[in-house]
């Protein structure tokens, strides 16, 4: 298929580079804890991206090192960070109004599962002995104009995390618009899931792995 753009599956850093490249210049972006944080390593100055952190800051800079470390300046993962020129601070209700109010262009999140209709499960395994902790996951999933997910396509047991219906407890309903995985980039729209590109597999091989009907981007089902 013409959707194959790489002969190998993408590593975490390659995937982060791809997400970074897809973020439109001038965007306001929130990068979730974990793998999505890697995206910041590949944003360029020319892109002029402003990073939001939900504990109350726009204009977040890179992780603080050595003498830069300041306990009053941390990100949502509680990691010391730096501030860039033009940064601003605000309280928590304002910070989440920025999300809920639809002012953020993109948030990038990790996931346990994403459904064919864009439902997201990323906060709780549902195990009876697990202590639930949600943080800002539901607010992020609901508020941003676009929600990008970064994840491996398969679990360690080889099961697709792109599913017909999520079996894990939901974080948000119909919120995910794009899924970046090591094997393909999926676009989720009201008319179904299409594949923008594949990495190290053909479209047909990908369809074998995923229990959701896929369309090649710009093509019709079955091609």
């Amino acid at each position: 298929m013409s959707t194959q753009t790489s002969t190998k599956p993408l590593g975490r850093d390659d995937l982060a580079r791809l997400v970074a490249r897809d973020i439109a210049p001038g965007s306001f972006v929130n990068l979730g804890i974990g793998q999505p944080t890697l995206v910041s390593n590949y944003l360029t100055e020319e892109q002029n991206i402003t990073l939001h952190t939900e504990n109350g800051m726009l204009g977040m800079g890179p992780e603080a090192k050595g003498e830069e470390i300041d306990g009053d300046l941390i990100n949502a993962g509680k990691i010391p960070v730096t501030e860039l020129p033009g940064a601003s601070y605000f309280h928590h209700a304002d910070s989440f109004a920025i999300m809920r109010g639809g002012h953020l262009d993109i948030c990038v999140l990790g996931a346990f599962q994403v459904s064919a209709t864009g439902d997201l499960a990323n906060w709780h395994t549902g195990a009876p002995d697990a202590i639930p902790a949600v943080g800002g996951a539901m607010d992020l999933a609901t508020g941003a104009k676009d929600v990008f997910v970064m994840m491996t396509l398969l679990t360690r047991d080889g099961v697709s995390k792109l599913v017909d219906t999520c079996s894990y407890p939901l974080t948000g309903v119909g919120c995910v618009t794009r899924v970046y995985t090591d094997k393909a980039v999926f676009l989720i729209a009201p008319d179904g899931v299409s594949v923008r590109e594949t990495f190290g597999c053909t479209f047909e091989e990908l369809q074998e792995l995923v229990p959701v009907p896929l369309k090649a981007a710009g093509a019709v089902v079955g091609l």
């Binding site: 309280h91 209700a93 800002g136 607010d139």
Partner: peptide, 15 residues
């Protein structure tokens, strides 16, 4: 006892 609240809802409920 635990009442778990999404972070933005927690902030807005306090506000």
């Amino acid at each position: 006892e635990l009442e778990l609240v999404p972070q933005g809802n927690l902030a807005e409920r306090i506000r």
